[in-house]
Design a protein around this nucleic acid. Sequence first.
DNA 1: TCGTTACTGAAGTGTATGCTTCACTAATGG
DNA 2: CCATTAGTGAAGCATACACTTCAGTAACGA
Lengths: 107, 107
Amino acid sequence: MAKLKAHAVLSALGDPTRRAIVEKLSERPHSVSKLAAPLGITLTAVAQHLQVLEECGLVRTEKIGRVRTAQLRADGFQVLRSWVDDRRSLVERQLDQLAAMLREDEN
Amino acid sequence: MAKLKAHAVLSALGDPTRRAIVEKLSERPHSVSKLAAPLGITLTAVAQHLQVLEECGLVRTEKIGRVRTAQLRADGFQVLRSWVDDRRSLVERQLDQLAAMLREDEN
DNA sequence: TCGTTACTGAAGTGTATGCTTCACTAATGG
DNA sequence: CCATTAGTGAAGCATACACTTCAGTAACGA
């Protein structure tokens, strides 16, 4: 079901706020509050986004005391990378076929 | 502005119907009608999706006679791949740092 | 122990956007 | 030519979902 997971990742990254969160987290792990501040949205909103990101394997969160800290996970990115590479190789195959056909036509 | 473009690609692929179109096109180029049939949506809807996919560099379309044919482009995928790889390398760096810190702690 | 901080869960709101309909143009083919 | 097929543009609808508010809990720290 790697395909299904890739769809979940793409669906999650479709939202600009979640992409902002991911980019922020790619610097270093952050608490919910630290993520919310620069985005100008409520903690609740951030928590909701984090849940989506967590479900698709892009983020892991851990609550210590009253602070929940989020950090990126490699898993989701790996799945996404595979999906992209699959499509990309199919595109290139099509381009090769096209080129071959054009060569045929020249005869 | 490679970053902005990656965002456009991710935004486009956030929609399940557009992902279905992309996956269909990764077999071979298709006309608007051929894309619409299995999806159970109107030609108009497909045309709208194709416009989004075209704007972000994932698809190229060409109209010959009354038939518009869509095919995948490598460009959008390349941009997306770069974005994913950037994040992924940052994640791995963080994991390395964490591992190093844990080793420190063992002393 | 009391005030503040950090978050959570439920419930409601507003809006972006995916999709439709309809009226139209233009190419195709019998 | 005439009927059919393929697609387009404008305009409207309707629903998903991003975000809020509010009321609550639990941890921290002075």
